[in-house]
Amino acid sequence: MSNKEWPLWEVFIRSKQGLNHKHAGSLRAADEIMAIENARDVYTRRSEGVSIWVVESKNIFASNPDEADSLFEPADSKIYRHPTFYEVPDGIEHM
């Protein structure tokens, strides 16, 4: 990157108290303070947020899509982790 252009940041917004921060998009900023302010101006113009996280994009590590099979499919066969796996006799409530 040349010294003329700013690094890329990923923006996460909490839309209201009680909800998770959710990825909103990315933007350019020279530092974290500017990144927060730019995020406010770019991604919350219509009152979409009450809190902002920013992280420089280069600091995000992602799983490899080629390994998706081995990472995520083994969980599919563990159906006993879900309540619907179990039989409950008729007439039982609140379980």
């Binding site: 010294n3 003329k4 252009e5 700013w6 020279a30 530092d31 500017m34």
Partner: peptide, 15 residues
């Protein structure tokens, strides 16, 4: 805007 973007980077690096 080039000098502006450059200045912001330079300041961020100093910080």
């Amino acid at each position: 805007g080039e000098w502006v973007r450059e200045a912001a980077n330079a300041y961020a690096a100093k910080k």
